[in-house]
Nucleic acid binder design. Structure first.
Lengths: 254, 254
DNA sequence: CAGTGGTCTAGACCACATA
DNA sequence: ATGTGGTCTAGACCACTGA
């Protein structure tokens, strides 16, 4: 960021080489670049709105929009009477992209299929109620499903579906689409919680995944809600040596 | 969302019970509520800007700000000439909050300490270059550190620091602050990548964590960049049975 | 109390996609 | 061709807060 502004000259008339960036996008890029490069370190005050306004030769609304966006992205903090300041990057958070299982397998260049191993409707047991965070006894659907990559088991899925929240699941056989994909395509969800652990395979898991008992496995438990109501609980178990979760994070994910 | 608008009457004069929400915050809340509750399902067109404008009795800029915000949060999609539409919730992504280790331990109500087990400066080996994604040989600092919760090892940290990017690390002993905390407080970072796996403890890990060889462990590998330059690589290894990662996701994280 | 950000307006012109 | 969103302006008033 050699020189911040260059008045209006550089935006409107002669297109600035690349594409036609809107003015606020250009300002945003300039400031974000200065922050992410470290040129403007955490704690540094960035120019006042009226300074940016005159540097870029634009209205205050335009620079305000940019600063609001930076503040939403947690790159700056805005303080009345003092100005806006570069924040330190967040401790260690990350956006985990958990793909759907079929997508993962296909991305590996392997063929995919799934198989419903067990399927039972029942009144929620105490464990079911704990997992679904149900306040009262309610009908649930319990599913066990194996996902294959090529000939080998890739993932074991143990799922509970709250039939009060998703009554249409009661008669579904999950042949064309695995339970996860079926649910995603039908039920909008508004919140989810994931827990990730490493466990040693017990006999049942070892048998289902065709691995030795005690092998380290990665488990992902997910609870999903829709509008304060629990929809489904699922535990996915992967052989640890052949699966990894990847997460990327860049400040200002927008 | 019984009735969307009620003209300007309800915002300005008699404060609407709770706090004084700004107009665009109130509109935002109304629409987000309708989407998250499922009242407006994915694919549904939301009112045009000019409709909202007249419903709320405000200027177009105000509703535009709201819709822009919803679009940034991936709750709606805006299409010219067609209108704005509710998006389906993202497949399965989640925001992983990876706390710092000391914070984790303290949150468990245990006492925390760390211990530097090994510390070596060297020219980057081939493996180092791979882990740090270095193009050329460069000086690196290799650290091994044990983190304790109470009397028991809690986590094993194996870290590489790119001394070209962080020269001041060369003479640091990491006594007061563990390497991770030290780095976070000094080096702004702009991007990170995490890989999460389950492994069986090998002899070295078992020894360091005082567990049996073969025990399932959770490992987190993290690469951190600052402005296109690799800063550090770290592998954290936790005994699987006593550690879990928790991630929560709510659409519209803003 | 003075200066900053926070919000909002009533226009305007443009680009774009689609009916 | 038409209507939508995308952007921008030149003001304005207010609230907060730190000097």
């Amino acid at each position: 960021m050699a020189s911040l502004g260059s008045a209006r000259a550089s935006n409107g008339l002669h297109t600035p080489a690349k594409a036609t960036l809107s003015l606020h996008q250009r300002i945003l890029g300039d400031i974000r670049g200065a922050i992410l490069s470290g040129e403007w370190p955490p704690g540094r005050r960035i120019p006042f709105e009226h300074e940016l306004q005159s540097q870029y030769g634009c209205s205050r609304m335009t620079v305000s929009k940019v600063l609001t966006e930076l503040a939403h992205g947690k790159l700056i903090e805005r303080r009345r009477k003092s100005g806006s300041f570069v924040l330190r990057p967040p401790g260690q958070s990350a956006v985990l992209e958990i793909q759907d299982i079929k997508g993962e397998v296909v991305a590996l260049g392997l063929s995919y299929r799934h198989e419903i191993v067990a399927r039972r409707k029942r009144k929620a047991t105490l464990e079911d109620r704990d997992r679904l965070e149900l306040a009262s006894v309610a009908p649930v659907l319990s599913l066990t499903c194996r996902h294959f990559a090529g000939a080998r088991p890739f993932c074991l899925e143990e799922r509970l579906i709250n039939l009060t929240a998703v009554p249409e699941a009661a008669d579904e056989r999950f042949v064309d689409a695995a339970p996860g994909a079926w649910l995603v395509s039908r039920v909008p969800w508004s919140a989810a919680e994931h827990k990730i652990r490493a466990i040693g395979a017990d006999a049942g898991i070892a048998n289902a995944l065709e691995i030795d008992a005690g092998t380290a496995c990665l488990t992902i438990e997910r609870r999903t809600w829709r509008a304060e109501r629990s929809v489904t609980f699922v535990r996915l178990t992967y052989p640890g040596y052949e699966h990894e979760l990847v997460a990327r994070f860049t400040p200002s994910r927008r």
